[in-house]
């Protein structure tokens, strides 16, 4: 049963031109690819374009692919590059965290808090829209795929330490801006 084969066996089947193997490989990895594309772009249509291009590259590249060990990293690199390529075509992606402030709607909040939270949502949207492509991709790989720093470093072609420091920098920046915004709004209330 080809769906239960390992990636290596599926890849070998693809290289022999077995059509079912392409489908099986797609089924195995489609959610991973699409999730990264969607979380990076924030747009379902754009995400499908990215996923489509990723799998086309994958199927083309399989002919010359050797070895199983790096397949996952290779696939991640393909989707990351497709995301960047798509970003160059589209002037502006929707913000990554468009829904990220939905959690702010905690029980027991006042109407004024609701207004502040709505403003916070807009502020977050601006902050995230201002992230660089690399910062956005770091967040997606870390939180969508729960990848380790080592894995992210291998995909992005950098070091573990660089990934750690860049992620830390993004966190600090988001925290600072959220706190600053909250304080400003809190001051207005008093």
């Amino acid at each position: 049963m080809v769906l239960e084969d390992s990636d290596k066996e599926l890849i070998e089947s693809c290289q022999r031109g077995e059509t079912d193997a392409f489908r099986a490989l797609f089924e195995r990895h489609k959610d991973k690819v699409y999730s990264i594309a969607l979380r990076y772009s924030g747009d379902a249509n754009v995400a499908q374009d990215i996923a489509q291009e990723t799998f086309l590259k994958l199927f083309v590249g399989l002919r010359s692919f050797r070895g199983e060990a790096d397949f996952s990293s290779w696939l991640y690199r393909l989707v990351v590059n497709s995301c960047y390529d798509q970003k160059r075509k589209v002037s502006r992606f929707m913000p990554l965290l468009d829904e990220a402030v939905a959690m702010l709607h905690a029980p027991g909040i006042s109407a004024l808090d609701e207004i502040v939270r709505a403003e916070l949502r807009g502020h977050l949207r601006d902050v995230v829209a201002g992230l660089s492509d690399e910062q956005r991709m770091l967040l997606v790989l870390r939180y969508t795929q729960s990848l380790s720093y080592d894995q992210i470093a291998a995909i992005l072609g950098t070091t573990n330490g660089t990934v750690a420091s860049r992620l830390n920098r993004v966190h600090r920046m988001l925290e600072r801006r959220l706190l600053r915004f909250s304080s400003r709004k809190g001051g207005h209330r008093g």
Binding site: K30, D31, L139, Y143
Partner: peptide, 16 residues
């Protein structure tokens, strides 16, 4: 929140 909001999703059937 990053973990919750960036959670994986299921690819649409139309993708294939």
């Amino acid at each position: 929140e990053l973990a919750r909001q960036l959670c994986p999703v299921v690819a649409p059937d139309a993708l294939w």
